[in-house]
Design a binder for these strands. Structure first.
Lengths: 143, 143
DNA sequence: ACTGAAAACGATGCAAC
DNA sequence: GTTGCATCGTTTTCAGT
């Protein structure tokens, strides 16, 4: 999908505040509110904008303890398998297949250390996982 | 800050769609629109809701190639130093101090491999970094 | 916390460039 | 093909109860 400069600026506006009104965005990009809405609609149906969400403090909503876990899997493990498995665990907020020693990297978010330990234990019980290496997040510097 | 069950459901509604109208949320949680707005205002000023943002396809906006980089730092490196340094690089979308072998984990997002390589090179030039270990993201399974 | 009114916003059709 | 204007229905917001 083709994005011109106006689209980029509309996206930038929505990234910084998804509840900005179309008229307000229009002021910035020199377009009328309906024109902005049409572009946003096009961006949404084109898959560029997937949706709008709130940015919530993880600590306030029971996700104050995080970890990144490297997964080492058996030879014939497919990405689809890892996807299915990780989706079953509500603590998983991100999962990626990666190059390097590990096969996958999983981002976990739990209420506290014991919850994290429990989630990790559950994750490690997946049959295709041979071993894991955990990095517990001590502090979030950038996000 | 104290969150009751209604607050949680309001947050859940806004997480799934930040542009949901207060009236619509009110239908779900059995409250009038003004009552919902007052709670959202309270959650915002209380820091639970930090803002609202669009969910954009990274590939469409010049961030289709990602990597997680483990940072190994010199003995007297402070988290503040790492924060300052990583903030200077626009490709850094996340940075965390972690337990384990590495001192920090940095999440990079670049347009393509060569852009990623360039960003990594720039990052590695930071004086307090002794070495790095990169995991290039092959596919995003969950996010 | 609800109700009601005024102002602002969102959505759609139609004409124009 | 995209924009702008006008319109109508809805939503937000602030008062008062």
């Amino acid at each position: 999908m083709q994005l011109d400069d106006v689209d980029q600026r509309i996206i930038a506006a929505l990234l910084s505040d998804a509840r900005t009104t179309y008229a307000e965005i229009g002021m910035v990009v020199s377009l009328s509110a309906p024109a902005v809405k049409r572009r946003v609609d096009r961006l949404r149906s084109g898959g560029v904008i997937k949706g709008f969400t709130a940015v919530v403090d993880p600590a306030a909503v029971g996700g104050g303890t995080e970890a990144f876990v490297e997964l080492f899997c058996t030879g014939r493990t497919t990405p689809a398998q890892i996807t299915m498995a990780t989706r079953r665990h509500p603590e998983v907020v991100g999962a990626y297949t990666v190059s390097g020693e590990a096969d996958a990297l999983v981002h976990l978010r739990a209420a506290d250390i014991s919850h994290l330990e429990q989630a990790l234990e559950r994750l490690r019980a997946e049959p295709f996982i041979t071993s894991t290496r955990s990095m517990i997040v001590l502090s979030r510097l950038v996000d």
